[in-house]
């Protein structure tokens, strides 16, 4: 399984990421997910979220999740981008792409990846009030 992990303060350029997509032989499903900063956290309006990571551990933990995906589904490729630092409202903080032969495993692996990330990958957010 091919994997590509980017953790960066740079804005996520979804169009460029899609343009660089490489479909393997026999692959028929691409699931993409964008996590976008909402304008509200609870009942409060916010302008941005400031993301912080224990980056070395985050990379390792993402690697473990990728390994678990490879063991469980016939996924050909996973690309994940997580932005750090200040991410303004309506901009993506997370972008995930899973490519697999069929949609069932692509959806399942993408969901698994995000759920595991939210349990194990040491990234935290601090909302900035409006």
């Amino acid at each position: 399984m091919k994997t590509q992990l980017t953790i960066s303060i740079d804005p996520i350029d979804e169009a460029a990421l899609v343009k660089r997509r490489e479909m393997g032989d026999g692959m028929g499903a691409v699931v993409c997910f964008s996590g976008v900063v909402r304008g509200r956290e609870g009942h409060a309006s916010i302008t941005a979220i400031d993301y912080e990571a224990h980056e070395e551990m985050a990379r390792h933990q993402f690697g473990l999740i990728f390994e678990a995906i490879e063991q469980r589904w016939p996924v050909d490729s996973v690309r994940l981008v997580h932005r750090l630092g200040l991410v303004p409202v309506n901009e993506p903080s997370l972008w995930v792409e899973v490519i697999a032969p069929h949609r069932a495993e692509a959806f399942a692996a993408c969901q698994f990846l995000i759920e595991e990330m939210k349990q194990k990958v040491p990234i935290w957010k601090k909302p900035l009030p409006a």
Binding site: G35, E56, M57, H60, H82, S93, I114, V121, K125
Partner: peptide
Amino acid sequence: GVNYQDDDFMLSDGDEVSFFPPVQGG
């Protein structure tokens, strides 16, 4: 280091320990 450990993990000289709240990526 880069791995979660249980409470009974035996520490060694030079270990780097992290304490943090529940994670919130995404």
